[in-house]
């Protein structure tokens, strides 16, 4: 038996560097692990998550939303959902949070090189995909990939990551298509489910990999639609949200049949999920 087991459940302190209010429900926090005054290096892969602690609130899993090329700090985009995320929404620059991780199996970036990339996100589900998009844009291996983003929000006021969307559009590197469930008089864009955008972009299923994240119902509709379009289940990749406590594959709160989402996921291909009792696939 080894003796170097300490620290598995011990969070490190991270400092809030900046706070961006994405919309009324979502804030993005840039965090740095602090060792004295100098930020320490934090390495992760897109799709991984950290366990975030807030005083007296326990921990919650939050996906990392920033590029893996940035190692002095990382972003967490957090939607108001419960006690811990409410506490996070009052964080100011300079405040501290606890961090464990990164944990989980990331998106298979190496397998995405040389393919068309189709990102399909709903609401806060853009957070983990933003990490992939930013990582790809910073990685010369992806300089020739065609990148398309379909992003659905409830209403124009709910559209998050506006700064990123504008920058991606402006750079010409990401073909962004937005839609909202409920339009407003001054909304000139598309209204309807994010699946309706698939007709517009008409992806080529033989040379495209689709990365999908959003609410369960959205994932279900998108996976079904992509399958109809002829996508191979190995080319459809999603990331699942579950209740988690340990983050390291022991406590079993995130069980999905014989898999544990924290250890075997959270990133799964549709092929890996087929045959399992998955809420996101239920008919």
């Amino acid at each position: 038996m080894e003796h170097n087991a300490a620290g598995l459940y011990l969070p490190k302190t991270a400092k809030v560097q900046s706070v961006i209010e994405e919309n009324s429900q979502i804030k993005t926090f840039a965090l740095s692990l602090s060792m004295g005054a100098q930020p320490t290096v934090f390495r992760f892969q897109p799709g991984q998550f950290v366990m975030v602690s807030m005083p007296h609130c326990g921990e919650a899993p939050i996906s990392i939303a920033s590029s893996n090329s940035r190692t002095d700090s990382f972003d967490l985009s957090v939607r108001l959902a419960g006690r811990l995320t409410s506490a996070m929404h009052s964080l100011q620059p300079g405040d501290s949070v606890g961090i464990r991780g990164p944990f989980g199996r990331p998106f298979p970036l190496d397998k995405l090189v040389g393919t068309d990339l189709l990102f399909i996100a709903g609401g806060i589900g853009l957070a983990p995909l933003r990490s992939v998009i930013l990582s790809c844009l910073a990685d010369p291996r992806f300089s020739d990939n065609r990148i398309t983003l379909l992003y659905g929000s409830r209403s124009p006021a709910d559209i998050a990551f506006c700064t990123d969307l504008a920058a991606w559009e402006k750079s010409g590197r990401v073909d962004c298509h937005l839609t909202v469930d409920h339009g407003t008089p001054d909304w000139k864009g598309s209204v309807g489910l994010v699946t309706s955008l698939l007709d517009t972009v008409a992806p080529n299923p033989t040379r495209t990999k689709a990365l999908v994240c959003g609410p369960g119902l959205m994932i279900r509709a998108v996976l079904a639609e992509l399958t109809c379009l002829g996508f191979d289940p190995n080319d459809i990749i999603t990331t699942l949200e579950r209740h988690m406590k340990c983050g390291v594959g022991v406590c079993r709160h995130c069980h999905l049949d014989d898999k544990l989402v924290c250890r075997d996921g959270p990133v799964f291909t549709l092929a890996e999920l087929q045959g399992h009792e998955v809420m996101e696939l239920a008919t």
């Binding site: 459940y9 602690s53 005083p55 007296h56 609130c57 326990g58 921990e59 579950r242 406590c251 709160h253």
Partner: peptide
């Protein structure tokens, strides 16, 4: 895993037995 406040400024993080049959075991925020 849960936090047990001991005062407004400190507390303990506890690991406690749980059961997969409890209805709240997999419930998300």
């Amino acid at each position: 895993i849960s936090d047990q406040p001991l005062s407004p400024t400190n507390g303990e993080r506890l690991r406690s037995w749980d059961a997969c049959t409890f209805s709240g075991f997999t419930r998300m925020a």
